[in-house]
């Protein structure tokens, strides 16, 4: 495992990610941000505040679309999916905290298409930790890091209920 005793500052990474997304919203102001529960929603809300146009933010909870439902069952805390407006024909930026196997992104795409047919979907993540099991790649990424399988990279918000709460990374052995 790389030396990650000092993990990068998630808040700074979000600012960098927002900066890299700025041209997208200048080019196509109708673009919608959709965060994947839970971390992706926090990041999408923060990015929307950082961009001058404050684009609308939606959220998807992929619990009903997981590919491991028959092995793992339903998550006890399914959150409501809220797609804020008609996404049909609009460009969508899907936002997640960590890109790992790609299975969450696959599930999120399936769910998104049940709400309409976006003109394009791009993926923005705070961290790409490698380990892909599906042909999925991030279009925007603030931090690329190669982590072993047993590592658990988690984004937390303190306090968790505060939209302005501090976002930090933690890493432990799963």
């Amino acid at each position: 495992m790389p030396d990650l005793k000092k993990l990068p500052d998630a808040e700074q990474q979000i600012m960098a990610l927002a900066e890299s997304l700025r041209p997208v919203f200048e080019r196509a102001p109708e673009t919608v941000l959709i965060g994947v529960f839970t971390g992706g929603v926090w990041i999408a809300e923060r990015i929307s505040q950082l961009l001058p146009s404050h684009p609308p933010v939606g959220s998807v909870d992929i619990s009903f679309y997981r590919d491991d439902f028959s092995e793992r069952g339903l998550s006890p805390n399914v959150q409501p999916t809220t797609v804020p407006l008609d996404i049909a024909g609009k460009p969508v930026i899907l936002v997640d905290d960590v890109l790992y196997t790609g299975r969450t992104t696959r599930a999120a795409l399936n769910e998104l298409f049940d709400y309409g047919r976006p003109s394009t979907v791009q993926l923005a993540v705070l961290a790409d930790r490698g380990g892909r099991q599906l042909p999925i790649a991030a279009d925007f990424c603030a931090w690329r890091v190669s982590l072993p399988e047993n590592a658990n990279l988690v984004l937390t918000r303190t306090p968790v209920d505060d939209p302005k709460g501090q976002l930090t990374w933690s890493l432990d052995d799963a």
Partner: peptide, 13 residues
């Protein structure tokens, strides 16, 4: 509850 409010009233579980 929300699933029945959508246009696409179906999830693949």
């Amino acid at each position: 509850i929300g699933v029945s409010d959508r246009d696409m009233k179906k999830v693949p579980l």
